[in-house]
């Protein structure tokens, strides 16, 4: 739904293939919303503590992770890997894909004073920052600044999709059985994104290097988010979200 340049240009086939494999955002939104509604229904009918805002955010992140895993499994490149390598790649990049999912939604969300959740709900930014502590406040502001820079760049949905593959097939992940294959996929995606930017934005010759710079900023943010989640988990404030906790442990191990 994001503004994507309508072009008669000859776009890299790989980029078009990536976009074709994207999940239906509205389907994901309805499934996660249904899950949360059931969760809150169970909460209200049982004697357990009502979910805090942070607890709800953890459930949303946990559910989003399920869809991220489902997306990865649908990628042809990913299917070529054995499950051991698939796990290592996802253990490595889960927080970056979560942060990218959040930020890319803000890039195409036109209201400055709210943030848009994957469920379609909007959260008032001022009240969130008022409730948030120092660390979470810094995280939300950092994400917002990055989203604004990507908005100024007019990042489009095809570039976001390429980001996902560059994040998933990270050549820096060690101890892979098929290291060479992952490096090869990374370089193929990187080349396709470069070709795409030169083809669609010829007037912006350093667009590709700017995109890679923002990808590094996203990685820094995701590490900060992991640190925060670890801290909250140690305080016993993260509800029992199996997948989210497993990913956190695997990355921190």
């Amino acid at each position: 739904s994001s503004p994507t340049p309508h072009t008669g240009l000859d776009l890299p086939a790989l980029v078009l293939e990536f976009v074709r494999c994207e999940q239906d955002e509205l389907l994901v939104r309805s499934k996660i919303s249904t899950h949360l509604a059931l969760l809150q229904q169970n909460q209200s009918s049982s004697s357990t503590e009502p979910l805090t805002t942070f607890g709800l955010m953890c459930h949303i992140a946990d559910q989003t992770l399920f869809f991220i895993v489902e997306w990865a499994r649908s990628c042809n490149f990913f299917k070529e890997l054995k499950v051991g390598d698939q796990m290592k790649l996802l253990h490595n990049c889960w927080s970056e894909l979560l942060v990218l999912d959040y930020i890319s939604r803000q890039v195409h969300h036109d209201e400055q004073d709210t943030i848009l959740l994957i469920t379609g709900q909007k959260v008032d930014l001022t009240s969130l920052l008022t409730q948030a502590g120092v660390t979470l406040g810094e995280l939300v502001r950092g994400a917002r600044q990055l989203a604004q820079r990507l908005q100024e760049l007019q990042l489009d949905c095809r570039e976001i999709t390429c980001f996902k593959y560059l994040i998933l097939f990270n050549p820096d992940v060690k101890l892979l059985e098929n290291q060479e294959y992952v490096e090869n996929v990374y370089h193929q995606v990187s080349g396709a994104l470069l070709e795409y930017t030169l083809c669609v934005y010829p007037q912006h010759v350093d667009r590709f290097s700017q995109l890679l710079l923002h990808l590094r900023e996203l990685r820094v943010l995701s590490t900060q988010a992991e640190d925060y989640l670890s801290y909250k988990h140690l305080n016993g404030e993260v509800p029992c979200n199996k997948l989210l906790i497993e990913m956190l442990h695997a990355k921190r191990a």
């Binding site: 399920f66 895993v69 489902e70 499994r73 499950v83 698939q86 796990m87 996802l90 253990h91 199996k242 997948l243 497993e246 990913m247 695997a250």
Partner: peptide, 18 residues
């Protein structure tokens, strides 16, 4: 203590569209 089975591994090994 046997390690808890990985949920991620279960998801990755599940039949497609499960």
């Amino acid at each position: 203590e046997p390690e808890e089975p990985s949920l991620l591994k279960k998801l990755l090994l599940a039949p497609p569209n499960s």
